[in-house]
Simulated scan of single mutants.
Amino acid sequence: MLSHLAAVALTTAAPVAAVPDLVPAADREIVFTVEGTPTYGTLHVPAHRAGQRLRAALLLPGSGPTDRDGNQPRMSPNTLAQVADALDRDRVVTLRFDKYGTGATGLGAYRDHPETLDYPAFVRQAKAAYETLREQPETAPHALTVVGHSEGAMTALLLGGSVRPRPASLVLLQPQAIRLLDLVALQLHAQIAEAARQGQLDPEQQRTVDAAIDAAVTALREHRPVDATGLPPAVAQLFQGFQGQNGRFVDSDDAVYPPATAAALRPGTRVLLTCGTNDAQVPCATTDALTVALRRAHVGGPGRVRLPGVDHLLHDAGHPDTPAPAVLDALHRFAGR
Protein backbone atom coordinates (compact mmCIF):
# COMPACT_ATOMS: atom_id res chain seq x y z
CA MET A 1 0.00 0.00 0.00
CA LEU A 2 2.84 2.40 0.89
CA SER A 3 4.63 1.68 -2.37
CA HIS A 4 1.43 2.32 -4.28
CA LEU A 5 0.99 5.69 -2.59
CA ALA A 6 4.60 6.56 -3.34
CA ALA A 7 4.04 5.81 -7.00
CA VAL A 8 1.01 8.03 -7.05
CA ALA A 9 2.99 10.80 -5.39
CA LEU A 10 5.73 10.46 -7.96
CA THR A 11 3.38 10.55 -10.94
CA THR A 12 1.48 13.59 -9.69
CA ALA A 13 4.53 15.60 -8.71
CA ALA A 14 5.03 16.85 -12.28
CA PRO A 15 3.70 20.38 -13.02
CA VAL A 16 0.00 20.42 -14.01
CA ALA A 17 -1.42 23.03 -16.37
CA ALA A 18 -3.72 25.45 -14.58
CA VAL A 19 -7.41 24.79 -15.16
CA PRO A 20 -9.17 27.94 -16.41
CA ASP A 21 -11.63 29.46 -13.97
CA LEU A 22 -15.16 28.23 -14.61
CA VAL A 23 -17.94 30.80 -14.54
CA PRO A 24 -21.31 29.33 -13.53
CA ALA A 25 -24.44 29.84 -15.62
CA ALA A 26 -26.29 33.04 -14.74
CA ASP A 27 -29.03 35.44 -15.81
CA ARG A 28 -28.26 39.15 -16.09
CA GLU A 29 -30.77 41.97 -16.40
CA ILE A 30 -30.08 44.04 -19.50
CA VAL A 31 -31.41 47.53 -20.26
CA PHE A 32 -30.93 49.22 -23.63
CA THR A 33 -32.59 52.35 -24.99
CA VAL A 34 -34.41 52.48 -28.31
CA GLU A 35 -35.67 55.84 -29.58
CA GLY A 36 -36.09 57.11 -26.03
CA THR A 37 -37.58 53.91 -24.58
CA PRO A 38 -35.61 51.90 -22.00
CA THR A 39 -36.08 48.28 -23.02
CA TYR A 40 -35.64 45.55 -20.42
CA GLY A 41 -34.40 42.05 -21.04
CA THR A 42 -32.70 38.95 -19.68
CA LEU A 43 -29.28 37.83 -20.84
CA HIS A 44 -28.67 34.17 -20.02
CA VAL A 45 -25.02 33.10 -20.06
CA PRO A 46 -24.28 29.36 -19.84
CA ALA A 47 -21.44 28.02 -17.73
CA HIS A 48 -18.17 28.83 -19.47
CA ARG A 49 -14.47 29.45 -18.98
CA ALA A 50 -13.53 32.95 -17.85
CA GLY A 51 -12.83 35.12 -20.87
CA GLN A 52 -14.41 32.67 -23.30
CA ARG A 53 -16.68 34.05 -26.02
CA LEU A 54 -19.71 31.93 -26.86
CA ARG A 55 -22.21 31.65 -29.66
CA ALA A 56 -25.27 33.76 -28.91
CA ALA A 57 -28.91 34.02 -29.95
CA LEU A 58 -31.46 36.81 -29.85
CA LEU A 59 -34.94 35.47 -29.04
CA LEU A 60 -37.97 37.25 -30.54
CA PRO A 61 -41.55 36.70 -29.33
CA GLY A 62 -44.75 36.18 -31.28
CA SER A 63 -47.54 38.67 -31.90
CA GLY A 64 -49.67 40.51 -29.37
CA PRO A 65 -48.61 41.46 -25.84
CA THR A 66 -46.02 38.70 -25.60
CA ASP A 67 -43.23 39.42 -23.12
CA ARG A 68 -39.59 38.30 -22.90
CA ASP A 69 -40.54 34.84 -21.61
CA GLY A 70 -43.17 34.26 -24.31
CA ASN A 71 -46.12 34.96 -22.02
CA GLN A 72 -49.27 37.05 -22.35
CA PRO A 73 -51.83 38.14 -19.73
CA ARG A 74 -53.70 35.04 -18.56
CA MET A 75 -51.49 32.77 -20.69
CA SER A 76 -48.05 31.61 -19.55
CA PRO A 77 -46.53 28.97 -21.84
CA ASN A 78 -43.00 30.36 -21.16
CA THR A 79 -42.14 29.65 -24.79
CA LEU A 80 -39.02 31.81 -25.03
CA ALA A 81 -37.80 31.06 -21.52
CA GLN A 82 -37.94 27.37 -22.40
CA VAL A 83 -36.13 27.95 -25.69
CA ALA A 84 -33.41 29.76 -23.72
CA ASP A 85 -33.13 26.73 -21.43
CA ALA A 86 -32.83 24.42 -24.42
CA LEU A 87 -30.07 26.52 -26.00
CA ASP A 88 -28.19 26.65 -22.70
CA ARG A 89 -27.57 22.92 -23.09
CA ASP A 90 -25.55 23.69 -26.21
CA ARG A 91 -23.78 26.58 -24.45
CA VAL A 92 -25.50 29.34 -26.42
CA VAL A 93 -25.90 32.76 -24.78
CA THR A 94 -29.44 34.12 -25.18
CA LEU A 95 -31.02 37.55 -24.93
CA ARG A 96 -34.78 37.93 -24.67
CA PHE A 97 -36.53 41.23 -23.95
CA ASP A 98 -39.89 42.85 -23.20
CA LYS A 99 -41.00 44.38 -26.48
CA TYR A 100 -43.21 47.47 -26.68
CA GLY A 101 -46.41 47.09 -24.68
CA THR A 102 -45.17 44.27 -22.44
CA GLY A 103 -43.42 43.62 -19.15
CA ALA A 104 -41.07 46.20 -17.67
CA THR A 105 -40.72 48.04 -21.00
CA GLY A 106 -44.36 48.99 -21.50
CA LEU A 107 -45.24 51.45 -24.25
CA GLY A 108 -42.32 53.72 -23.41
CA ALA A 109 -42.13 56.65 -25.81
CA TYR A 110 -45.47 55.59 -27.33
CA ARG A 111 -47.36 55.81 -24.04
CA ASP A 112 -49.15 59.05 -24.96
CA HIS A 113 -49.78 58.16 -28.60
CA PRO A 114 -50.06 54.36 -28.93
CA GLU A 115 -51.84 54.71 -32.27
CA THR A 116 -48.49 55.67 -33.86
CA LEU A 117 -46.81 52.39 -32.86
CA ASP A 118 -46.25 50.39 -36.02
CA TYR A 119 -44.52 47.14 -36.93
CA PRO A 120 -41.26 48.81 -38.10
CA ALA A 121 -40.86 50.19 -34.56
CA PHE A 122 -40.73 46.61 -33.26
CA VAL A 123 -38.16 45.74 -35.93
CA ARG A 124 -35.99 48.67 -34.86
CA GLN A 125 -36.31 47.56 -31.24
CA ALA A 126 -35.20 44.04 -32.22
CA LYS A 127 -32.26 45.49 -34.16
CA ALA A 128 -31.15 47.42 -31.07
CA ALA A 129 -31.42 44.20 -29.06
CA TYR A 130 -29.22 42.42 -31.61
CA GLU A 131 -26.60 45.16 -31.32
CA THR A 132 -26.77 44.92 -27.54
CA LEU A 133 -26.23 41.17 -27.66
CA ARG A 134 -23.32 41.62 -30.08
CA GLU A 135 -21.54 43.91 -27.59
CA GLN A 136 -21.76 41.62 -24.54
CA PRO A 137 -18.34 40.44 -23.30
CA GLU A 138 -19.39 36.76 -23.36
CA THR A 139 -20.59 36.70 -26.98
CA ALA A 140 -18.73 35.98 -30.20
CA PRO A 141 -19.98 38.79 -32.50
CA HIS A 142 -19.56 36.74 -35.68
CA ALA A 143 -21.42 33.72 -34.31
CA LEU A 144 -24.85 35.25 -33.69
CA THR A 145 -28.23 33.66 -34.33
CA VAL A 146 -31.70 35.21 -34.41
CA VAL A 147 -34.47 32.93 -33.15
CA GLY A 148 -38.03 34.06 -33.76
CA HIS A 149 -41.35 32.47 -32.86
CA SER A 150 -44.44 33.17 -35.01
CA GLU A 151 -44.44 36.91 -35.85
CA GLY A 152 -40.99 37.07 -34.26
CA ALA A 153 -39.75 34.75 -37.00
CA MET A 154 -40.80 37.32 -39.61
CA THR A 155 -38.86 39.94 -37.67
CA ALA A 156 -35.89 37.55 -37.60
CA LEU A 157 -36.00 37.33 -41.39
CA LEU A 158 -35.95 41.12 -41.68
CA LEU A 159 -33.00 41.37 -39.28
CA GLY A 160 -31.18 38.62 -41.15
CA GLY A 161 -31.02 40.80 -44.24
CA SER A 162 -30.18 44.11 -42.58
CA VAL A 163 -28.08 43.93 -39.39
CA ARG A 164 -24.29 44.00 -39.20
CA PRO A 165 -22.61 41.66 -38.91
CA ARG A 166 -25.15 39.44 -40.62
CA PRO A 167 -26.27 36.61 -38.34
CA ALA A 168 -24.61 33.29 -38.96
CA SER A 169 -27.97 31.55 -38.69
CA LEU A 170 -31.72 31.99 -38.26
CA VAL A 171 -34.22 29.82 -36.42
CA LEU A 172 -37.81 30.37 -37.58
CA LEU A 173 -40.15 28.59 -35.17
CA GLN A 174 -43.70 28.20 -36.53
CA PRO A 175 -43.17 31.41 -38.57
CA GLN A 176 -45.65 33.94 -39.84
CA ALA A 177 -44.78 33.17 -43.44
CA ILE A 178 -47.56 34.92 -45.38
CA ARG A 179 -49.12 38.38 -45.09
CA LEU A 180 -50.83 39.02 -41.77
CA LEU A 181 -54.38 39.50 -43.05
CA ASP A 182 -54.07 36.52 -45.39
CA LEU A 183 -53.11 34.43 -42.35
CA VAL A 184 -56.00 35.81 -40.30
CA ALA A 185 -58.44 35.05 -43.13
CA LEU A 186 -57.08 31.52 -43.47
CA GLN A 187 -57.49 30.90 -39.75
CA LEU A 188 -61.03 32.28 -39.74
CA HIS A 189 -62.10 30.29 -42.80
CA ALA A 190 -60.81 27.14 -41.09
CA GLN A 191 -62.81 27.93 -37.96
CA ILE A 192 -65.98 28.59 -39.97
CA ALA A 193 -65.49 25.33 -41.86
CA GLU A 194 -65.19 23.47 -38.57
CA ALA A 195 -68.35 25.15 -37.25
CA ALA A 196 -70.18 24.07 -40.40
CA ARG A 197 -68.85 20.53 -40.03
CA GLN A 198 -70.27 20.42 -36.52
CA GLY A 199 -73.66 21.58 -37.78
CA GLN A 200 -73.50 25.06 -36.26
CA LEU A 201 -73.80 26.67 -39.72
CA ASP A 202 -75.56 25.51 -42.86
CA PRO A 203 -73.78 25.76 -46.23
CA GLU A 204 -75.44 29.07 -47.13
CA GLN A 205 -74.47 30.61 -43.79
CA GLN A 206 -70.92 29.37 -44.26
CA ARG A 207 -70.68 31.03 -47.68
CA THR A 208 -72.09 34.27 -46.27
CA VAL A 209 -69.59 34.40 -43.43
CA ASP A 210 -66.65 33.47 -45.68
CA ALA A 211 -67.58 36.25 -48.10
CA ALA A 212 -67.88 38.73 -45.23
CA ILE A 213 -64.41 37.77 -43.96
CA ASP A 214 -62.87 38.35 -47.39
CA ALA A 215 -64.72 41.67 -47.71
CA ALA A 216 -63.41 42.76 -44.31
CA VAL A 217 -59.82 42.00 -45.32
CA THR A 218 -60.27 43.99 -48.53
CA ALA A 219 -61.73 46.92 -46.61
CA LEU A 220 -58.80 46.99 -44.20
CA ARG A 221 -56.29 46.97 -47.04
CA GLU A 222 -58.17 49.77 -48.78
CA HIS A 223 -58.36 51.73 -45.50
CA ARG A 224 -62.14 51.64 -45.42
CA PRO A 225 -64.36 50.88 -42.40
CA VAL A 226 -65.18 47.21 -42.05
CA ASP A 227 -68.83 46.27 -42.60
CA ALA A 228 -69.67 43.77 -39.86
CA THR A 229 -72.82 42.58 -41.63
CA GLY A 230 -72.68 38.80 -41.97
CA LEU A 231 -69.86 38.39 -39.46
CA PRO A 232 -70.33 36.46 -36.20
CA PRO A 233 -69.94 38.79 -33.20
CA ALA A 234 -66.52 37.42 -32.20
CA VAL A 235 -65.19 37.81 -35.75
CA ALA A 236 -66.66 41.30 -36.05
CA GLN A 237 -64.97 42.25 -32.78
CA LEU A 238 -61.65 40.92 -34.10
CA PHE A 239 -61.84 43.09 -37.23
CA GLN A 240 -62.91 46.10 -35.18
CA GLY A 241 -59.76 45.58 -33.12
CA PHE A 242 -57.69 45.82 -36.30
CA GLN A 243 -58.92 49.38 -36.85
CA GLY A 244 -58.57 52.56 -34.84
CA GLN A 245 -55.63 52.51 -32.42
CA ASN A 246 -54.23 49.29 -33.92
CA GLY A 247 -54.78 50.23 -37.54
CA ARG A 248 -51.29 51.53 -38.23
CA PHE A 249 -49.65 48.44 -36.79
CA VAL A 250 -51.91 46.02 -38.70
CA ASP A 251 -51.40 47.90 -41.96
CA SER A 252 -47.60 47.98 -41.60
CA ASP A 253 -47.38 44.33 -40.54
CA ASP A 254 -49.64 43.23 -43.40
CA ALA A 255 -47.37 45.10 -45.84
CA VAL A 256 -44.58 42.55 -45.28
CA TYR A 257 -44.58 39.44 -47.47
CA PRO A 258 -42.08 37.16 -45.71
CA PRO A 259 -40.93 35.17 -48.79
CA ALA A 260 -39.81 38.44 -50.40
CA THR A 261 -37.53 39.20 -47.45
CA ALA A 262 -35.50 36.02 -47.98
CA ALA A 263 -33.68 37.50 -50.98
CA ALA A 264 -31.73 39.86 -48.68
CA LEU A 265 -30.22 37.03 -46.64
CA ARG A 266 -26.52 36.35 -47.00
CA PRO A 267 -25.99 33.19 -49.11
CA GLY A 268 -24.90 30.37 -46.85
CA THR A 269 -26.79 31.65 -43.79
CA ARG A 270 -27.90 28.53 -41.94
CA VAL A 271 -31.67 28.40 -41.52
CA LEU A 272 -33.93 26.14 -39.51
CA LEU A 273 -37.65 26.58 -40.20
CA THR A 274 -40.04 24.48 -38.14
CA CYS A 275 -43.72 23.80 -38.70
CA GLY A 276 -45.96 21.69 -36.51
CA THR A 277 -48.49 19.32 -38.02
CA ASN A 278 -50.95 20.27 -35.24
CA ASP A 279 -50.42 24.01 -35.61
CA ALA A 280 -53.84 25.53 -36.36
CA GLN A 281 -52.48 29.09 -36.28
CA VAL A 282 -49.65 28.62 -38.79
CA PRO A 283 -50.32 25.44 -40.79
CA CYS A 284 -47.32 23.91 -42.52
CA ALA A 285 -48.77 24.76 -45.94
CA THR A 286 -48.40 28.48 -45.18
CA THR A 287 -44.62 28.04 -45.12
CA ASP A 288 -44.39 26.57 -48.65
CA ALA A 289 -43.61 29.84 -50.44
CA LEU A 290 -41.08 30.89 -47.81
CA THR A 291 -39.37 27.49 -48.02
CA VAL A 292 -38.98 27.92 -51.79
CA ALA A 293 -37.73 31.50 -51.35
CA LEU A 294 -35.08 30.38 -48.87
CA ARG A 295 -33.80 27.79 -51.33
CA ARG A 296 -33.60 30.43 -54.05
CA ALA A 297 -31.63 32.64 -51.67
CA HIS A 298 -29.05 29.83 -51.40
CA VAL A 299 -29.15 29.66 -47.63
CA GLY A 300 -27.77 26.70 -45.75
CA GLY A 301 -29.77 23.87 -44.22
CA PRO A 302 -31.50 22.14 -42.71
CA GLY A 303 -34.35 24.34 -44.00
CA ARG A 304 -37.88 23.27 -43.16
CA VAL A 305 -38.35 20.58 -40.53
CA ARG A 306 -41.85 19.21 -39.94
CA LEU A 307 -42.65 18.47 -36.32
CA PRO A 308 -45.24 15.66 -35.99
CA GLY A 309 -48.02 16.39 -33.52
CA VAL A 310 -46.58 19.77 -32.47
CA ASP A 311 -48.80 22.84 -32.02
CA HIS A 312 -48.12 26.56 -32.30
CA LEU A 313 -46.69 26.82 -28.79
CA LEU A 314 -44.20 24.03 -29.51
CA HIS A 315 -46.11 21.45 -27.44
CA ASP A 316 -47.46 18.02 -28.31
CA ALA A 317 -50.13 15.86 -26.66
CA GLY A 318 -47.63 14.30 -24.27
CA HIS A 319 -45.95 17.59 -23.33
CA PRO A 320 -48.65 20.27 -22.89
CA ASP A 321 -46.45 22.56 -20.80
CA THR A 322 -42.95 22.05 -22.19
CA PRO A 323 -41.38 21.93 -25.66
CA ALA A 324 -42.05 18.64 -27.41
CA PRO A 325 -39.08 16.26 -27.82
CA ALA A 326 -39.22 16.87 -31.59
CA VAL A 327 -38.69 20.59 -30.97
CA LEU A 328 -35.80 20.05 -28.59
CA ASP A 329 -34.20 17.60 -30.99
CA ALA A 330 -34.46 20.04 -33.91
CA LEU A 331 -32.92 22.83 -31.83
CA HIS A 332 -30.13 20.61 -30.53
CA ARG A 333 -29.27 19.28 -33.99
CA PHE A 334 -29.08 22.85 -35.26
CA ALA A 335 -27.36 24.55 -32.31
CA GLY A 336 -25.09 21.65 -31.48
CA ARG A 337 -23.23 21.82 -34.76
Rank of each mutant, 00 (worst) to 15 (best):
M1R: 12
M1D: 08
L2Q: 10
L2A: 14
S3C: 11
S3Y: 10
L5K: 06
V8Q: 07
A14P: 00
V16I: 10
V16Q: 15
V16F: 10
E29C: 03
F32K: 01
Y40D: 05
G41M: 01
L43P: 06
H44Y: 04
A50D: 14
G51A: 05
L54K: 08
L58H: 05
G64P: 11
G64L: 04
P65Y: 04
T66F: 03
D67N: 11
D69E: 12
Q72L: 04
P73T: 05
M75H: 09
S76L: 14
S76G: 02
V83K: 04
A86R: 07
L87I: 06
R89W: 03
R89E: 15
R91F: 01
R91G: 11
V93E: 02
T94N: 07
L95A: 06
R96G: 06
Y100K: 04
T102M: 00
A104T: 12
L107Q: 08
D112P: 08
D112R: 15
H113C: 02
H113L: 02
H113R: 14
H113Q: 09
P114G: 14
E115C: 01
E115K: 08
Y119F: 15
P120C: 09
A121T: 08
R124H: 12
R124I: 01
R124L: 07
Y130Q: 04
L133T: 03
L133C: 02
E135S: 14
T145V: 15
G161V: 03
S162H: 12
P165T: 10
R166E: 14
R166F: 10
P167Y: 09
A168R: 15
S169G: 15
V171R: 10
L172I: 10
L173H: 04
P175D: 07
I178S: 07
R179V: 02
L181Y: 12
L183T: 15
L183H: 11
V184C: 02
H189F: 05
A193Q: 14
A193K: 13
E194M: 05
D202T: 11
Q205Y: 02
Q206L: 12
Q206Y: 08
R207N: 13
V217L: 13
H223W: 03
H223P: 01
P225F: 07
V226E: 00
D227E: 14
P232G: 14
P233T: 13
A236T: 13
Q243T: 15
Q245S: 09
Q245F: 02
R248W: 08
R248L: 14
P258D: 09
P259Y: 07
P259T: 13
T261L: 06
P267N: 10
T269D: 12
R270M: 05
V271Q: 06
L273D: 04
C275E: 05
G276C: 12
G276Y: 12
Q281A: 15
V282F: 03
T286C: 05
D288N: 15
V292D: 14
V299K: 02
G301C: 06
G301Y: 09
P302K: 07
P302N: 08
P302F: 05
G309V: 06
A317M: 03
A324W: 10
D329L: 11
A330W: 09
H332W: 02
G336F: 02
